[in-house]
Simulated scan of single mutants.
Amino acid sequence: MSSLNILVVEDEDAIREMLVMVLEQAGFRSIAAADAEDAQKVLDDALPDLILLDWMLPGVSGVEWARRLKKDPMYRGLPIILLTARGEEEDKVKGLEIGADDYMTKPFSPKELVARIRAVLRRSGKINDLAQITVGDLVLDTEQHRLSIGDKQLDVSPTEFRLMQFFMTHPDKVFNRTQLLDQVWGRSVYIEERTVDVHIRRLRKILAEYGREELVQTVRGFGYRFSIADSATVST
């Protein structure tokens, strides 16, 4: 769960801080923004796994920003849960019609919030209740901290394990070095971008022993992508 990031967009300081605390206690990473403008800057740097979005925000409202995101192919698949004091059925329908994945009326319990988040992440394929992520014959076991191909266990470091966990839960998407640093190492840690290249090379070397080095691909000018579909045509 530690590799999953949630963007919290809430203009009230006390509520925003409470949401961040609840999420971190539940094992998520969180990034906070006070309005849609700041939230968009976050998206420009790193793509979260889910957005908790307040309906009423200063400037561009939360519901309007959500509408824009759902129209953009880059963000269309990004899960959004709307948070609002509006409890009328008409407002709920409006929120869901623009593409929001769920809707919570304030006040709500932290336990219910976490349960709703997990449900949305489960539906979007970002978490696996079995604690195993399987892509083809590649299996990542988050409980036993093992990565294997078939019956062969791969010798990877904790960082490379987290890198593969992130890749396997975000297949076919391109991430630049900064995004990978934020998602795998965390924003609070200062590490040079070339560190990503070092771990990618080592990961490919390990995968190459099983003829699977093409699972982790370089997208020239952009970054890296994990793709089982493309690799299937070149692996033996």
Score class of each variant (00 low, 15 high):
residue 32 A to T: 09
residue 32 A to W: 02
residue 32 A to H: 08
residue 34 A to S: 14
residue 35 D to W: 04
residue 36 A to R: 00
residue 36 A to C: 09
residue 37 E to C: 00
residue 37 E to M: 06
residue 37 E to I: 06
residue 38 D to E: 14
residue 40 Q to H: 15
residue 40 Q to M: 13
residue 41 K to G: 14
residue 42 V to R: 05
residue 43 L to H: 01
residue 43 L to F: 01
residue 46 A to M: 12
residue 46 A to K: 00
residue 48 P to M: 03
residue 49 D to G: 08
residue 51 I to H: 01
residue 51 I to C: 04
residue 53 L to T: 06
residue 54 D to L: 02
residue 54 D to R: 05
residue 54 D to C: 07
residue 55 W to D: 03
residue 55 W to Q: 03
residue 56 M to P: 03
residue 56 M to C: 07
residue 58 P to Y: 03
residue 59 G to M: 05
residue 59 G to I: 07
residue 59 G to K: 04
residue 60 V to G: 01
residue 60 V to P: 00
residue 61 S to A: 10
residue 64 E to Y: 00
residue 65 W to N: 03
residue 66 A to T: 02
residue 67 R to F: 11
residue 67 R to E: 13
residue 68 R to F: 05
residue 69 L to H: 02
residue 71 K to S: 13
residue 71 K to Q: 15
residue 72 D to E: 10
residue 72 D to T: 09
residue 74 M to I: 13
residue 74 M to Y: 11
residue 75 Y to K: 09
residue 76 R to L: 09
residue 76 R to I: 11
residue 77 G to V: 04
residue 79 P to I: 03
residue 80 I to E: 01
residue 81 I to F: 00
residue 82 L to D: 05
residue 83 L to G: 04
residue 83 L to W: 02
residue 84 T to D: 01
residue 85 A to G: 15
residue 86 R to P: 06
residue 89 E to G: 07
residue 90 E to Q: 15
residue 91 D to F: 10
residue 91 D to S: 09
residue 91 D to C: 08
residue 92 K to L: 07
residue 92 K to D: 06
residue 92 K to A: 06
residue 93 V to E: 11
residue 93 V to L: 14
residue 93 V to D: 04
residue 94 K to T: 15
residue 95 G to A: 03
residue 96 L to I: 07
residue 97 E to N: 15
residue 97 E to A: 12
residue 97 E to L: 12
residue 98 I to L: 11
residue 98 I to G: 02
residue 99 G to S: 06
residue 100 A to S: 10
residue 100 A to H: 04
residue 100 A to M: 04
residue 100 A to K: 04
residue 102 D to A: 09
residue 103 Y to H: 02
residue 103 Y to V: 05
residue 106 K to R: 15
residue 106 K to F: 06
residue 108 F to L: 08
residue 109 S to M: 14
residue 110 P to W: 07
residue 113 L to F: 10
residue 114 V to L: 04
residue 114 V to M: 05
residue 114 V to N: 01
residue 115 A to K: 14
residue 115 A to G: 14
residue 116 R to D: 02
residue 119 A to K: 12
residue 119 A to D: 10
residue 123 R to I: 08
residue 123 R to K: 14
residue 124 S to G: 12
residue 127 I to R: 02
residue 127 I to V: 14
residue 128 N to G: 09
residue 128 N to M: 12
residue 130 L to V: 11
residue 132 Q to R: 15
residue 133 I to Q: 07
